[in-house]
Design a protein around this nucleic acid. Structure first.
Lengths: 232, 232
DNA sequence: CGGAACGTTGACATATATCAAAGGGAGTGG
DNA sequence: CCACTCCCTTTGATATATGTCAACGTTCCG
């Protein structure tokens, strides 16, 4: 059983941005700070304000990290899938989680103990540099989110989101088909709005002949105009 | 002249979050990567998308880091004063600045060369840990900004801002007086709105007897109700 | 002194949230 | 295999916060 657990741990280390390039010695050490956690869809991992005694790496499944308003509206900060880590920054600032986290799809998580991790950071500069890189990406994403929330309307944000999705599949000739990996309710919260408004934004793009929508399947008919709406 | 420059450099190192605790050897090395820059109010240090070849530490004055919408509205991400650094994260993500920066008050800046700094990071784990701490604080602040922008109205954000300002002066008995350190135009952009709307929010708080406003001087008459509006 | 930037106020436009309702799909249980 | 429920999604009518535009007084600084 222990060997099985170790195998899983190593697997998750390998697919994670943060740890994939560490040498065996560091991984041994890391293993001592890690444990596995299996969590069903819907489970709340922590609330904003909870004491942060550990952080997480996703092995399987999906987790959302979000802020909640007093009256219940939520804004998703990020969605973490396999290989992604989250709540790392909480370890270094006051020891409280600055947001909440909930499992979106049955997940297998690596739980890494804060104190042991921090103590091994000092001995492994390589991890520190990985962490810095990771934080930089996060900062970049959050800065972008702030700008989009404050400076653009929902349709523009949706256009940006769609462009991001298809960038991965390069510029194959139109029409490009993509399947949303999140429910539209989740997407709405990620874009800082509500399902009703998101639905109307999809409508608008459809009416203008830029996309077609069939459930979670989106066809991009006119990438150029989509770019235009997104603001280049 | 060289000695004078060195003196200033050391002074800025000492007041900076990032470097104040480094030993002399590290500071010597850092000095090799640093130069001083005197910039008048209004100067644009870089635009979003520019190649990031260096980052900055403020010795004197004030700088705003902001996002611009296609039609000219701006959202300030942060304001950096003496001791603060900015644009550090740009070094590690694609080498492009994710936002623009402009000098708000005549400033003396430390300009730190990216490549030399990164190369010395590998030899000085202490700096890496400081950087991680710095990034964590930034992430925390940006996450908070995202939540506030998306989940609360302008008056609430203003209340949060005011509470932050007075937290420093602890809970002396009311009324507490504070002087805004930024022009209201700047404050509006920091709170994700425009001067007109900010002005009306000040009005609302004044009408309800929670604060009084006289130019940049704000008196907090009722901290409890201000907390209530801020959402605890 | 005079112009420019700032701050405030008013009337108005608009994007988006809210509320209510109804139509699917997917899964469950009989 | 059907019926039922739950959740997601969409649509419509309405409310509201905030942005826009215009005007005016103030302060600041050359």
């Amino acid at each position: 059983m222990l060997r099985t657990t170790g195998f899983y741990l190593r697997h998750i280390f390998k697919i994670s941005q943060l740890f994939s390039r560490l040498d065996d010695r560091a991984l041994d050490e890391l293993e001592q700070a890690s444990s596995l956690k299996n969590t069903p869809k819907g489970e709340l991992l922590f609330y904003e304000g909870d004491a942060a005694t550990s952080f997480f790496v996703v092995g399987r499944g999906k987790v959302k990290v979000f802020k909640l308003s007093p009256d219940g509206k939520e804004q998703i900060l990020l969605i973490a899938g396999p290989g992604d880590s989250f709540a790392e920054a909480a370890m270094f600032t006051g020891g409280k989680f600055p947001a909440s986290a909930q499992v979106l799809e049955d997940a297998e998580l690596l739980v890494i103990n804060r104190d042991r991790f921090v103590s091994m950071l000092e001995r492994n500069p390589g991890i520190a540099l990985n962490l810095i890189a990771e934080f930089s990406v996060l900062l970049h994403k959050l800065a972008r989110l702030v700008g989009e929330l404050s400076l653009t309307d929902v349709t523009t944000r949706l256009a940006c989101y769609l462009l991001d999705r298809i960038e991965e599949k390069a510029a194959s000739s139109e029409p490009i088909t993509l399947t949303l990996s999140d429910k539209k309710t989740v997407l709405a919260s990620l874009l800082g709005t509500i399902p009703e408004t998101l639905s109307r934004s999809f409508q608008k793009l459809t009416r203008d002949g830029i996309i077609t929508v069939d459930g979670a399947k989106i066809q991009i008919l006119d990438t150029d105009r989509l770019r235009e709406i997104a603001g280049e």
